[in-house]
Design a protein around this nucleic acid. Structure first.
Lengths: 338, 338
DNA sequence: TTTTTCTGCTAAAAGCTTTTATCAGGGATC
DNA sequence: GATCCCTGATAAAAGCTTTTAGCAGAAAAA
């Protein structure tokens, strides 16, 4: 009948072992109320000894803050979501906040189910993240009793939203290419109906000026390949640099250039977008590309939802976080690969 | 002062609105105890109307089961983890169980911090998953008061562990190649110190018999490329098929073969391992490969931890889940790509 | 008519923590 | 010596749900 051995220790055990009341134990452990320094030390020592850890459920029940948030994603492969989620949880674990991961597969019914589960758990907030930019959430998130932060996805007009800076990123690429003396820069990117593709293309056009050309297609290697074949088959001057809307496209571009016996970077320099290492590191030569700083995006989103959940104000609207140029060898820079 | 409007509805509100006691409301909603059918209906209707949803914290506090589990991963890029996690959460959400995602980055301190947070939250169990097979968990998981399930990672001797079937997978590949008339099958795979690489290679050797050769290297495209160059540079008979230990390696193999003007699949058939679509779909020709059924692995792990958390027995030891052959065009099958 | 059984409901406890209000006692002040 | 204030503690309530024990009334059995 004596099962105290494997029961979890409660604050009651601490109080008893330290010879004080429950309230004193609580006060001592949390540094609240008035406690004698000596008592406080004793209680803390005892708590440590018997391995007391407060029950987060009881705590949350009382404080009405569960110190947990939900992350709703419709990304299936995790290439964007997981690095971001790692950033979110990395920054939040220090504040004692944990993250529920809910993969919706873009299924509204599943999303709804996850959402209700999150609300039942009294999460302090929700981060919604999508892989596609123009996509609306698969579930109604606007009239929730808890704050919502959007990453890689657009919420309602006055919502808190984070994106990589799709204007600054392309400028980094173009500036880098210009510094290396390239002047005829071509842009090959994804579908025109992706907002990110449009923004990046426009920024590229603004940075390059006359003679610039943006080719829209798919987010695929195949499209990169095809686009290069088209360009090099037609008459007229050939580009001396290609800035791609994704690393996958860049991969196709590089392959196509090699098929055409065009030297990289001597004849044509190539810049990608994503810094998806498993692609960017494996191209020959390794790809200079734009990193969207997914982890940092996660950090910021995590901090935002933390502030919001405490009732602190957070500037509404879209915040665009700067991208970073990662120099490898596809542009002829003498720098070592990272 | 009247803030009842935005307060969450509790069972107290339901009881009041239905004109019954709290206990009756609870019994009616959960179908426990003795309740008049009419009362039960009324209570349920009222609950529905005012939008009552039980507070999972209070429920968990009482039942000592939080209906949440933790997933500890050291995968950084998410290629294995996220599909698996999606499988886990998909199967668990139907049982009212949510999943905490904890990315450890292989940092023991961070892992410990996450683990403690999970225990404080009274999670009903933990799924530990690693990307590398021989890796020990970055944190002590063996003496926990809650069950642990290992996926893609080896736990202590008597633990519940799931892996893809690294013996059956290679047999699928070899059998497929043999059926297509290939006889000189070469295996190019990752490092010898990866258990998975060794098992797959041995299974390949057993299936191929005399003349079979396994080349160990890296899990990289570059290694696939290099290995092909080596093989085709040396004298003697050339392989008519190459079975690769990963899709990335296969990618390098295919590129190298094309560089050598070897026709795929006419001269050499290629099979990969992973069915990592973003690679397998983009090779030219698209890659026939082995799918590890990550989502199914997640389903099984989720169900296992669910059973364990209820105290139901689950067979200990390593369970290996069958892989699936995905036929595309790199082996010359006439089937359409999927 | 009295006793038993069943039905439908309710009060109260338990789960664990934090917070509020209160209390006893000791020292300082007048 | 009486009053006041301060310190260091404590009891109790609150947070929300489920479960246990029990109660009142009606129907069935004796």
């Amino acid at each position: 009948m004596n099962n105290t051995g494997d029961r979890r220790r409660t604050i009651y055990d601490v109080a008893k072992a330290a010879g004080v009341s429950i309230s004193t134990a609580s006060n001592a452990l949390n540094g609240t109320g008035r406690t004698n320094a000596e008592t406080r030390e004793r209680v803390r020592r005892v708590a440590e000894e018997i391995g007391f850890r407060p029950n987060a459920l009881a705590r949350g029940l009382l404080s009405k803050r569960s110190h947990a948030i939900g992350m709703l994603t419709n990304d299936t492969y995790g290439r964007l979501t997981l690095p971001m989620a790692a950033g979110v949880s990395e920054v939040l674990v220090d504040h004692g906040v944990s993250v529920f991961l809910c993969a919706t597969n873009n299924d509204p019914r599943l999303a709804q189910q996850h959402l209700e589960a999150l609300l039942d758990r009294q999460v302090d907030g929700i981060i919604f993240t999508a892989t596609r930019l123009d996509l609306t959430p698969p579930v109604q998130l606007s009239r929730l009793p808890i704050p919502v932060v959007y990453v890689f996805a657009e919420g309602p007009a006055d919502s808190v939203t984070f994106f990589p800076d799709d204007e600054q990123g392309p400028r980094l690429a173009v500036d880098h290419l210009k510094e290396l003396g390239r002047s005829r820069i071509l842009h090959i990117t994804g579908p025109r109906d992706y907002l990110a593709a449009r923004i990046r293309a426009q920024s590229y056009l603004d940075a390059c000026g006359d003679g610039a050309e943006a080719m829209f297609g798919d987010w695929s290697e195949e499209w990169g390949h095809e686009a290069v074949q088209t360009v090099f088959a037609r008459p007229g001057a050939k580009p001396d640099a290609i800035f791609c809307g994704s690393d996958e496209i860049a991969r196709g571009v590089i392959d196509a250039l090699r098929d055409l016996n065009v030297e990289i970077p001597t004849d044509v320099a190539v810049v990608g977008f994503d810094n998806w290492e498993v692609v960017a590191r494996q191209t020959r030569p390794p790809l200079t590309t734009i990193d969207m700083e997914l982890k940092e995006l996660g950090h910021r989103a995590g901090l935002a939802i933390l502030s919001l959940s405490k009732g602190e104000p957070v500037p509404a609207g879209i915040t665009r976080l700067p991208c970073r140029l990662v120099v490898r060898q596809s542009c002829g820079s003498p720098l070592r690969s990272d």
